[in-house]
Design a protein around this nucleic acid. Structure first.
Lengths: 334, 334
DNA sequence: GCCGGTCGTCGAAGCGCTTCGACACTCTCT
DNA sequence: AGAGAGTGTCGAAGCGCTTCGACGACCGGC
């Protein structure tokens, strides 16, 4: 395995066929008799042949690699990001593609580079901001791309995400059904709102609209991620609104602190305060008490993003916008 | 930018030189007169030329891509992992390489595939277990590789990591200096020890040896990651050993819970119990009180791993084992 | 029994780059 | 002045694959 690699012409010789025949066996782009196919496949196994990726990319003008652009920004919950990333990798393999990891430190230059050099066939971008510097670049790129998240101006782009507005609204409905009429949203750290990250704002909008629609009293707050800050926020909130009995938490890192703060403030969950979280299932299940939650379907979103980008690569038409419906799992906290 | 890409021969024509001259300007592998170089560089800019990655890989037998093998296993702290990964990407770019992301779900087949197809020139593996299934494969691969972490049998491999044994010992020393003589280590979740993950065990060994060397009373415990479990562990520990006054915590996810538990058990930090953590600086700083800690130098480890793998790629000799010395930052918790 | 049509296979022409050997110059050093 | 040693540039031969057109062989239909 450490000598020179086996080439397609060695396979062809071994099987007694032309090089092109081996290629067609592998790609299935022309009909090959069952007998020849067998012989070729046997030779491939016998010699341990693996097509050379560079040669293949050069000849076919397809690298079979997609870029995953993953800026690791402050305030983003990394485990959630990684679930997306991991789902993208797994899904890409289903389409026989590999994933090249791009981080933010090269800025848009990295995207330009991998696209222009044909290192990748297509791009999946994560953690999209409302006013994202990468978006104009995507429009001028020949390579297809899919965004996980929505920028302010998504026309002409392909975007996938959980329907966060619906998620925010769903939480409110659930609390309303349980009879809570004074509630609050604890959201992302303020830096995330200021940056204009779409999902945080959309959740808030969904929350606010649903509060109005149900005629509740509700307030939406940013929420930092250290225990002390969370504690203060929760304490002040309860001081301001003694009648508050429902909380929606949309902040994976803070949700544990919120529960600890309530505990310290002698509020029982769900008896005194009901809590609904928007977070991955495992976070909700590990909390004490386990939280009623709208799950973030990271696997599904990642899979969908890859499906869309592959469709575009094959020239199939795809919808501009894909919103995945929120699913509420009721647990012990409401 | 969306038409056919510019090729090297168009650049050559535009600059009035041979194709090979353009190539040598780019690679610097032969001397080129300043005048010619200028003309070529100008043409490259004027035409917006980017070398085709596939063609380059084919001709040079170098893809300029390294694989980052990142199994996302239970119990591993993802943000820490991502800091490593991010450092690897950044460092790789310094050497003009990109990073292909491989996760565990393909098993060793993925490693074999990207190596055999020459998709990558080299590999960096993270989250190495003591008895890691990937290790035998690495030995038979022609491509150089570097491990972040140590397997049980590291002979013939190149490994980098924080010196966790020294880190565990350093924490003990610090507590001993402060006059604590009854201490405990709260480590990784038990599943991580059972899996034989090296860093967890090495920290424990360093801890135990230093405890003995200093003649202290010390116990090392696994530590799960939900608040309730942490609370029980801490409560039982304090019940068993009323004289306990120092705690070493080597578990990023649990460290917040430990502090919350101590708070709930009416132990003041550092007055009643001093706490030293082994965790990234930002986690230590965000805790309340900020924690004295041995930092996990993720950036440095990632950078070093890439440097080593590049050295191997160039045929330079590298040390089998690189252990980074622990650095203790004293903060408010001791 | 001859014609048009698949079917299965082959050979050759690239894909865009790197690298090797060759060669024409220009400098030294005697 | 001529040998020897660089410099700077060029042309051509691949790298290992895909894909296109060509071409026998074999089929059924009249």
């Amino acid at each position: 395995m450490s000598g020179r690699a086996v080439t397609i012409s060695e396979v062809a010789k071994h099987a007694g066929v032309a090089v092109s025949t081996v290629s067609y066996v592998l790609s299935g782009k022309r009909t090959i008799s069952a007998d020849t196919r067998r012989r070729v496949l046997d030779s491939i196994n016998a010699l341990g042949y693996h097509p050379n990726a560079g040669a293949r990319a050069l000849a076919s003008r397809r690298s079979n690699v997609i870029a995953l652009v993953l800026p690791l920004r402050a305030g983003m919950h990394v485990p959630v990001l990684m679930r997306f990333a991991s789902a993208v990798v797994t899904a890409a393999r289903r389409f026989d593609h590999d994933v090249l990891l791009l981080t933010a430190d090269e800025g848009t230059a990295g995207i330009r580079r991998v696209a222009a050099s044909a290192l990748v066939d297509a791009l999946v971008l994560m953690d999209v901001e409302l006013d994202d510097r990468r978006v104009p670049l995507l429009r001028e790129l020949a390579e297809p791309s899919v965004l996980i998240g929505f920028p302010a101006e998504p026309a002409g782009l392909t975007c996938v995400d959980l329907d966060f507005a619906a998620a925010g609204a769903r939480c409110v409905e659930h609390l309303a059904e349980r009879g809570h009429d004074e509630i609050a949203l604890l959201g992302a750290p303020s830096v995330v709102y200021e940056r204009g990250t779409g999902f945080a704002r959309r959740t808030r909008e969904g929350f606010v609209e649903a509060v109005d629609a149900h005629g509740l009293k509700g307030v939406a707050l940013a929420c930092e991620e250290t225990f002390d800050e969370v504690y203060e926020t929760v304490r002040d909130l309860l001081l301001d609104q003694p009648g508050l009995s429902g909380l929606v938490v949309h902040n994976e890192a803070a949700v544990g602190h919120v529960l600890a703060a309530l505990r310290q403030l002698d509020r029982r969950v769900p008896h005194d305060v009901a809590v609904v979280a928007i977070c991955p299932d495992d976070v909700a299940e590990r909390a004490s008490p386990p939280l009623t939650s709208v799950l973030i379907p990271a696997e599904e979103v990642g899979r969908e993003a890859v499906r869309l980008v592959m469709d575009k690569l094959e020239g199939r038409a795809v919808p501009d916008s894909t919103l995945l419906a929120p699913q509420l799992a009721v647990r012990a906290s409401t």
